[in-house]
Computed example of a mutant assay.
Amino acid sequence: MDETERRVLHKTETLTPMLLAMMLLSLLSVIVVLTLAFAKLNPETRYLLFIIDTSICIIFLTHFFYGFFKSYNKTDYLKHHWIDLVASIPAVEAFRFARLFQILRVIRLIRMTRSLLVPLVTQRNQTTLAGLLVAMVTILTLSSVFMLIVENGVPGANIITAEDAIWWAIVTISTVGYGDYYPITPLGHVIGALVIICGVSFFGVISGYMASILIAPGDHEQLEAYGNEMRNDFEDYCLRVEETQNKLLAEISALKDIIEQRDPSQNQSDKLP
C-alpha cells in the first residue's frame, strides 16, 4: 500500500472498535453461511441458523444506516460502503459471501494503523459496547445451535424447535430461568451451566458499563475538560508574558528618560576616550 492510498483510506475511514465488532460478526456470519451451504443439518437446525443470520443482517443494516446518516458526504459514504449494504441483505446466499470484503477492508485498516490497542484504549466506551454486542451474538448463536443439536430427537426433550432453542438461550443468558424449557441430557446440562456463567459475567460487565456512564464522565467530556484547562493555562501564560513585557518596556522608557535628563557636558565627557 503506497502513501497516496494510505491517505485516501485514512480520509474515508478509520479503525474503530465498532468496525472491529462488525468484522467479527461478519466472520461469524460467514461461518453460519458455510454451515448452511455444506453441512448436513436437520430442518430445525437449518431454520435456526437462518434466523441467526437474519438477525446479524439486521445488525449490519443498522450499522450501515447509522454511518450513512451520520456521514457528512453521503455520496462518498455510499461509494466506499455499498458492498456492506449488499452483504447485509438477508435470505440471498450469493450476497452473503460479500461480507468477506468487509473483513478484508478491516484487515487493511489494521495494517494501516499497525496496532489494535490504539482504538481499543482511546475509545473505551465504544470498545465495551462493541465487545458486549459481539459476546451476546456469539453466546446466543453457539448456545442455541449446540443445545438444539444435543436435545433434538432425544425422548422426553422439550427443546425441539428453533424457537425453543432461541428462547431458552435468551432466558438462560439473562439468568431469568423461567423453567419452561430446559435440557435433559448431560451434555445439555453442561452447555446450560456454561451459558449461565457467561450470562452472569455478561450482565456484570453491563452493570459496570452503565455505572461508568452514569458516574464517570465520558471520553469526550474528559477531553473537552482537559482542552479547556490547557486553554486557560495558555491564556494565563500569555497574560503573564504580556505583563512582564509591559514592565520591561516601562523600565526601558524610564532609563531612557534618565539618560536624556543628564547634563550635556557629562554626556560629552562620556564620549571622550
Rank of each mutant, 00 (worst) to 15 (best):
D2N: 12
D2W: 13
E5M: 13
R7N: 07
L9D: 09
L9T: 04
E13N: 04
P17L: 14
L20I: 10
M22H: 01
L28T: 01
V33F: 14
N42W: 00
N42G: 14
E44R: 02
L48T: 04
D53G: 07
C57E: 05
I59Y: 03
I59T: 06
F65D: 02
S71G: 02
K74Y: 05
T75W: 15
Y77V: 03
H80M: 11
H81S: 13
L85V: 06
S88M: 13
S88K: 08
A91D: 11
R99M: 15
T113A: 07
T122E: 10
R124C: 08
R124K: 13
V134N: 06
V134Y: 12
I139H: 04
L140F: 08
N152I: 06
G153E: 01
V154R: 06
T161P: 02
A165Q: 02
S174L: 14
G177E: 03
G179E: 01
T185Y: 00
T185L: 04
I191M: 09
V195G: 01
V200T: 04
V200Q: 07
S201T: 03
V205T: 05
I213H: 07
A216F: 05
G218N: 03
H220A: 11
H220D: 14
E242L: 14
E243G: 12
T244I: 10
Q245G: 03
N246P: 00
K247I: 08
L248F: 14
I252Q: 13
S253H: 09
L255C: 04
E260F: 11
E260Q: 08
R262H: 06
R262F: 10
S265T: 09
Q266H: 09
